[in-house]
């Protein structure tokens, strides 16, 4: 504000002053109430301000979840309702995708292994591929599309029709009711869905293998889990939790910050899916890297 009143636009300021001003702005925004109670003064150029405002807003939005974690009451009925919605609504799509992945992956891996006379390794190959990589990723991508878009559109529509403001003015704490419940439900449900996807994919794989070779289910399971250890299992669960948090948080953030009417609702739903998909791939890479250090 001082810079603005002195006639500077901010673009010509030395970097150190610019960074200091941005940091001040950032720290002020971090202290603000989570609901957007108005526009802030422009300190520097609109672009630079916008960048820092977005970072501050997103950080506050995410950090507020952890604050709410320690602030009862927890809205258990609504969390249960969201768990049911996220879990049951996604089951048909996840069942079909998981089953087909199991069949197709087995079918396509067979010729390569057959060249080396190693078809007996198929169960363990599929086990490793499904548990360690495919199940968390596929579940997350499906849920980003199905759950993320649904949350983004629902909250976006509530935002443009002032329903979120209505909760706010009646002291009904919209963040706790709308965001905390959805994020918590996703964090619980995505790992469960991931385990279900793994199970269904393995069943698809078993059916394909048993058509070509005589193998009992017990032998198939024993072989499949032979090369999977506790860290692999834990790693997949961690991935699913992180993906669940990301999908729901991104969708809620996009929904909560929807502007420009019905067009904005569509954009929020779309942005929720696209952004969470980008983040899922980046997180996948980071988690694999980090888990590699613990082996």
């Amino acid at each position: 504000m001082v810079f603005k009143s002195a006639g500077y636009t901010g673009d010509y300021l030395p970097n150190s002053i610019l960074h200091l001003a941005c940091a001040l702005k950032f720290s002020r925004l971090m202290k603000m109430d989570i609901t957007d109670r108005g526009e802030e003064k422009i300190y520097l150029s609109k672009k630079i301000d916008g960048f820092f405002i977005n970072i501050a807003k997103t950080s506050r939005f995410v950090l507020n979840y952890f604050v709410e974690l320690f602030r009862p009451p927890y809205e258990f009925p609504e969390i249960a309702r969201q768990c049911y919605k996220i879990g049951c609504d996604s089951l048909p799509l996840i069942s079909l995708t998981g089953f087909i992945i199991g069949i197709v992956f087995t079918k396509q891996s067979r010729p390569s292994l057959a060249d080396f006379g190693a078809t007996s390794w198929l169960p363990s190959l599929i086990g490793i591929a499904v548990f360690k990589a495919l199940a968390p990723l596929v579940t997350a991508l499906i849920c980003a599309g199905k759950v993320g878009s649904s949350i983004g559109a629902e909250l976006g529509a509530m935002k443009v029709t002032e329903q979120i403001e209505a909760m706010d003015v009646s002291a009904s704490r919209p963040y706790k009711y709308l965001v905390f419940t959805r994020v918590t439900a996703c964090v619980f449900m995505i790992p469960l869905l991931m385990l279900y996807t793994s199970f269904v994919a393995m069943m698809g794989s078993y059916i394909n293998i048993s058509i070509n070779e005589h193998i009992s289910l017990a032998t198939f399971i024993a072989n499949a889990f032979d090369k999977i250890n506790f860290i692999d299992f834990k790693g997949s669960i961690i991935k699913a939790v992180v993906f669940g948090f990301t999908i729901s948080m991104v969708a809620c953030y996009k929904g909560f910050n929807t502007t420009r009417g019905t067009e904005g609702v569509g954009k929020a739903a779309n942005a929720a899916v696209v952004t969470s998909m980008y983040l899922i791939f980046i997180e996948e890479l980071m988690i694999v890297q980090i888990l590699g250090w613990f082996r």
């Binding site: 529509a157 509530m158 029709t161 002032e162 329903q163 403001e165 209505a166 909760m167 003015v169 009646s170 002291a171 009904s172 704490r173 009711y177």
Partner: peptide, 28 residues
């Protein structure tokens, strides 16, 4: 202590009239 009546009513679509009215009461 301050009630706000919105221009477009801002009723919660997913709730019945009764649930709409009970909502702020139950949460506060």
């Amino acid at each position: 202590k301050v009630g706000f009546s919105f221009q477009l009513s801002a009723l919660y679509d997913s709730m019945t009239v009764k649930e709409n009215i009970a909502f702020p009461l139950m949460r506060n």
